[in-house]
Amino acid sequence: MSEPDIYLTTVSPSAVAQAVRSKCPDVTQKSMQGNRLELIVPPSRIRDVVGLLNELISDALPESVFGIDLQNDRYELIYVFWSHLNRMLCQLRVSLEGTVPEVDSVCDIFPGLEWHERETHEMFGIGFKGHPDLRLLLLPEELSGKYPLRKRFKTDRSRLSETGLPEARPGSKEAET
């Protein structure tokens, strides 16, 4: 009986950071607390970095990919990987700009990210180049192209007036959210 082969290699977070930076010098390391590694990756290099992670970390678990709307057409994508063997949490941050931002898809390297990318596409309108299947995943047809998780998408707040409380002052924090 043999051990599963993903047990073979261990690698430390600092070694991963070093390897990534020697291959892609434009990647910057944000912080490293204990076992958490954060790398800021330019959008053009994401495929290289994820491919390198796949080679270095033999048991990388693709936890998630998600977007954040930073308003004014700026978006941030966060890729999270967890390695049980090295007890390492690796976050890759990608900043994007533009009304229809685009980034390379990594779902052929980590198939588990395919649906996460599909969801990010329908919720934020971020395009993934090379993704095989960018249909709607969770949303109904009538919300196609509306990108509901963008801050610009306004929800119905009419029920708040039913409480009998005075309305929040315009411009206050409560009125914004």
Binding site: P4, D5, I6, Y7, D59, L61, H84, R87, F110, G112
Partner: peptide
């Protein structure tokens, strides 16, 4: 097998059943 399952993003009992003690209670 475990390597495949990890690539798909499976975790918890589905991976532990392959013989890998991946558990956040101990790991993290």
């Amino acid at each position: 097998d475990a390597a495949q399952g990890l690539k798909w993003g499976l975790s918890g009992p589905n991976i532990k059943a392959c013989g890998i003690p991946m558990d956040l209670r101990k790991d993290d």
